[in-house]
């Protein structure tokens, strides 16, 4: 039982420059060289004590990052702050070099796509209706989706393999199909950064892997940056090589698997006894928590806002 495995090769750099060429698609591209998303000294919360405390981070274009940490640690809050759903009480959030306070909600939506944790899906919308919603940030008030938007929606549905389901109602889809439809909506949005809040939490094993592989492919082929909240650390190690560990509203550690997934850091963050195992055959790390000897101390802030 080796304690820690060496890092998987090819960890994307945090400060990696944006890969996007000057296609001019979004219309609000930032200064070249600026990280895609940057937080400087951010406090954010829901009134009362802030959930995020002095969070600073920077993710470049093309990054593929798992956001991990205990319940109530601030994962969802960080995603909400990054997508301007939550205004920070201090500090600055920059998207492609632009302060989000000076951006419109649609302006943010043209850069950041957000897949919520448990969205409403028992609805009379067809898959195509839902995917076309991804075009709303690109359309003005009363404008209807045109051929261009239908093309974008179609491409997104093809990428997530829901094109054949386009006329099916969302309510009749399986969990995995619905999740793919929602990811398709985000792709139709043509964001540069995709934020996902536990995209696999309601899915069975096969769908979990399918969604992860889809994300990996989107990252590899389209250079789409991805920041996903994941509870399942083993799933995370299977697909991710860059991690952000957040606990108690602070970023505790950031980097490759060997930096972040250490028994000490994880044990302290989760308040549990953690073993990190190295599977020699595939070089895959497994993370195991031992059953607690005593009840876990609630040291990680309110559980109400996260999870």
């Amino acid at each position: 039982m080796a304690r820690v495995a060496p890092a998987a090769a090819g960890t994307p750099g945090v400060w990696e420059m944006t890969r996007l060429t000057g296609s001019g698609g979004g219309g609000s591209d930032g200064h070249d060289g600026a990280p895609l998303i940057e937080m400087r000294d951010v406090d954010a919360g829901y009134g009362g004590a802030p959930v995020l405390r002095r969070v600073s981070l920077a993710l470049g274009g093309g990054s593929f990052t798992a956001l991990i940490g205990p319940n109530g640690g601030g994962k969802s809050t960080l995603l909400r702050t990054a997508s301007r759903m939550l205004r920070p009480s201090r500090g600055t959030v920059l998207l492609a070099g632009n302060d989000v306070r000076r951006m419109s909600q649609s302006g943010v939506a043209r850069i950041v796509g957000f897949v919520p944790q448990s969205p409403q899906t028992d609805l009379e919308f067809t898959v195509e209706d839902v995917v076309l919603m991804g075009r709303y940030p690109h359309l003005s008030g009363m404008q209807r989706p045109g051929p261009r938007d239908l093309a974008a929606a179609e491409e997104a549905m093809r990428a997530t393999a829901v094109l054949d389901l386009r006329h099916r109602r969302l309510a009749e889809l399986s969990g995995g199909e619905a999740q793919r439809a929602l990811i398709a909506r985000c792709l139709a949005q043509k964001p540069r950064l995709l934020l996902l809040d536990e995209p696999t939490s309601h899915l069975d094993l096969a769908y979990q892997v399918e969604i992860m592989a889809l994300l990996k492919r989107l990252n590899a082929t389209d250079g789409l940056s991805i920041l996903a909240v994941l509870h399942d650390l083993n799933l995370a190690t299977q697909f991710f090589s860059h991690f952000l560990l957040i606990s108690g509203g602070r970023i505790v550690s950031e980097g490759g698997a060997d930096d972040v997934l250490s028994p000490g850091l994880l044990g302290e963050a989760y308040g549990a006894d953690i073993d990190v195992l190295h599977d020699a055959a595939g070089g895959v790390i497994r993370v195991l928590a031992r059953p607690p000897r005593e009840p876990r101390a609630a040291t990680h802030g309110g559980d109400t806002h996260d999870g």
């Binding site: 909400r80 997508s83 301007r84 759903m85 419109s104 909600q105 649609s106 302006g107 943010v108 939506a109 043209r110 950041v112 796509g113 957000f114 919520p116 969205p119 409403q120 609805l123 919308f125 209706d129 839902v130 919603m133 991804g134 709303y136 940030p137 008030g141 009363m142 909506r185 985000c186 949005q189």
Partner: peptide
């Protein structure tokens, strides 16, 4: 009528609506 689109998004929840550019 002017907010028909917002209605589509609000049905799906506030996070979806905000994520797609609606306050």
């Amino acid at each position: 009528f002017g907010r028909a689109r917002d209605l589509n998004l609000l049905v799906m929840g506030d996070e979806t609506a905000m994520g797609l550019g609606v306050d």
